[in-house]
């Protein structure tokens, strides 16, 4: 829209963004906090409903991750309160409840996303980032890393400023990598990100392999470096060589 004034962010675009994690399982909350902190987020934890209620009334967060089942209350109420007092906060529900009704209810009362447990931290990370981008920049900014630039609204990819045509899944895959730079991603996490969790066959892992091969080839063809590193037995990592 305004090419001159377009903000260009590097991988640390999320530094100092504040995230509240509402989760009663302490280990899981800790894992989420560790993972997101490495990505530059400033994280706080609430283990109970009342702690969460207090924190959201005192502080401003860019994103809140809410578990629905809390020992002393219902996560849905936190979502409702947040919508009332801090409408700018992005909300992601994480819950073991996987019924369609719960998902619809969650989205209806104002959460931006709904993830069912167990989920991949890399997926949560990607969704938190995408949510903040949408909320803060209306999704109008570019994602830039080294010689790779992704124009989010038009879904265009430039390598070394050269227009690179990617298939829909290759584009999704690149974006997932760019949201999880320097992070080892399992093949299963990638497959789930691309096709959802109904594809639980070995075929989907083959497909991950072939998409990665294509993406790597296309980046190399346009003069980019090979950033996709295979990790034996586990998956892949997008990192500077």
């Amino acid at each position: 829209m305004f090419p001159d004034s377009e903000a260009i962010f590097d991988a640390h675009e999320f530094t100092d963004m504040k995230v509240l994690v509402v989760e009663d399982e302490k280990g899981l909350a800790e894992s989420i906090v560790d993972y997101l902190s490495k990505e530059g987020f400033v994280c706080e934890v609430a283990n109970t409903f009342w702690q969460a209620d207090e924190k959201i009334s005192l502080y401003q967060y860019d994103c809140t991750i809410v578990d629905l089942t809390l020992p002393d209350g219902d996560g849905f109420n936190i979502v409702q309160t947040l919508k009332k007092i801090a409408a700018a906060t992005g909300i992601i529900i994480i819950s073991a409840r996987n019924t369609l009704e719960d998902k619809i209810k969650g989205l209806e009362i104002g959460s931006d996303d709904y993830m069912t447990k167990p989920f991949h931290l890399s997926e949560l990370n990607a969704r938190v980032k995408s949510l903040i981008r949408r909320r803060n920049f209306g999704g109008n900014n570019d994602m830039v890393w080294k010689e790779i630039r992704v124009q989010l609204p038009s879904r265009k990819v430039f390598i070394d400023e050269k227009d690179t045509v990617l298939s829909r899944k290759e584009y999704d895959l690149l974006l997932y990598f760019l949201s999880n730079i320097d992070v080892a991603l399992t093949k299963e996490a990638i497959a789930e990100h691309l096709w959802g969790d109904h594809m639980d066959s070995s075929d989907s892992l083959d497909m991950v392999y072939s998409h990665i091969k294509n993406l790597r080839r296309k980046i190399l063809e346009k003069g980019g470096k090979d950033y996709i590193q295979s990790i034996y037995g586990i998956g892949y990592k997008f990192t500077a060589p």
Binding site: E25, G27, L28, S31, I32, D34, Y35, T69, I94, S95, A96, R97, N98, T116, K117, P118, F119, H120, L121, S122, V183, A184, T186, A189, I231, Y232, G233, I234
Partner: peptide
């Protein structure tokens, strides 16, 4: 049951994901 079982599984998943980030894992 869904909550009580899926939450620990989420924890295992999350810890595994963190664990594989370390560079020096043997085969």
């Amino acid at each position: 049951a869904s909550h009580e079982i899926q939450t620990p599984l989420a924890l295992i998943n999350a810890r595994v994901e963190q664990f594989i980030q370390s560079q020096d894992l043997s085969e």
